[in-house]
Amino acid sequence: MTTTMPLADRRIAAWGWPLIALRLAAMLALLVASVALYYIFAPFTARNPVPRRFLRGVGAIAGLRVQVRGARPARRTFFLANHVSWLDILAIAGRTGSAFVAHDGLAQIGPLRWLCEMNDTVFVARHERRSVSAQIEQVRAALSDTGALTIFPEGTTSDGTGTLAFKSSLLSAIEGDSDIPVQPVWLDYGAETRTVAWVGEEPGLDNALAILARWRPVDLTLHFLPPLSPEDRADRKRMAAAARTAIEAARTGF
């Protein structure tokens, strides 16, 4: 696994704590309002618009500034993205309304599972090979229900200076389904990549607090790359390889 900056560099200066407190208070207020709106809209819409706006709002409060470049995603799209930070989820969901595939460790945290389920998150057992077929069915159902779904095929976060190997097992859910575009997405944090990356043994809370303590914004460019061609979708392994190649080509300029 790649590594990021030494944990000692995550120390928060005294003036960072008031900003953390202010941002957490703003996020809590947004959460309370969003939960109320979610249940108000729930009886009237199949795809509730509140989670998308909530996640986008949380990103803005955290200092995330997002620019979007590239091919405009279709309403119903299967996104394959590199994974650098928890901010990735706020950015992609906020701009596309996408649901996500997440490892089942998050499902063990009650409040977090509740929030994830509001955005139709699909939980999968990362190391449970016996349940792959069931997980594929979950992914298919989520695509049908939500329209847009994002997978981080690296299976974990990287330091953003390269992409890890893309795992292809869950891509079986869209083998042979030419009606759903498969679109690679490159998340580019520019010069701040190694600063915001959450990798290695760093506790998630430490990473989150360090980002919330920043007075400078976090700039992120979402590059929606061209959807994969029919040839690149011949099978799940070719899909994974083609998506990774596209992201690496965008990242390196080749």
Rank of each mutant, 00 (worst) to 15 (best):
V101S: 04
V84S: 00
D177N: 15
P153T: 01
N119W: 03
L187Y: 00
A134F: 15
L19S: 04
G160F: 00
I174R: 02
A242G: 08
V196D: 05
L64Q: 12
V185K: 05
A107Y: 04
E248Q: 07
E128V: 01
R76N: 09
I40W: 15
A241D: 07
A42C: 12
E128R: 13
G16T: 03
P18C: 03
L220F: 14
M27D: 04
V50S: 04
T77I: 13
E117P: 00
T3A: 14
S229I: 03
R233G: 09
A36T: 15
V35Y: 02
H83N: 02
A249F: 03
V199S: 03
G63R: 06
R10H: 13
F254C: 11
F254M: 12
G160N: 03
L205M: 15
S168A: 15
A243Y: 10
A42K: 14
Q135A: 06
K237M: 11
Q138P: 05
A62S: 07
D179R: 12
D104P: 04
H83W: 01
I247F: 03
R129I: 13
K237P: 08
I247K: 01
A165L: 09
P203L: 10
E248M: 10
D219S: 12
H103M: 14
R113M: 01
P226M: 13
V68R: 04
G155P: 01
R72M: 07
V199W: 04
E201M: 06
L37D: 14
S85M: 02
L228K: 03
I211L: 15
D145R: 13
V35N: 05
A107E: 01
A249L: 02
I180A: 13
T156A: 00
T195H: 09
T193K: 08
N119A: 12
A191P: 13
I20R: 14
T45C: 14
A173G: 06
P203G: 07
L220R: 10
M239L: 13
K167W: 02
T121F: 07
S85V: 04
V218N: 00
H127S: 06
T195M: 08
L64I: 13
P18A: 09
W86A: 15
L112R: 04
G190N: 05
V196I: 15
A249H: 10
E175S: 07
L22F: 15
A250R: 15
G63L: 05
L171P: 12
A14R: 05
S168Q: 05
A234I: 10
R69G: 10
I92V: 14
N119H: 07
L164T: 00
W215S: 11
H103C: 09
A243C: 12
V132R: 08
I12P: 01
P226F: 08
A125V: 09
P18S: 08
R129K: 14
A102R: 06
R10F: 15
R47W: 06
I89C: 09
S144D: 13
A210Q: 11
A60Y: 11
V32Y: 03
V68D: 01
S131I: 12
T157N: 06
V68K: 01
L55C: 11
A246D: 07
R65L: 11
K167T: 02
P51F: 06
A243V: 00
F79Q: 10
L90V: 06
A210W: 11
A250Q: 14
L55N: 07
V124M: 04
G155S: 11
A148Q: 03
I109P: 05
A25Q: 07
A74Q: 14
I151F: 09
D188N: 07
G59T: 06
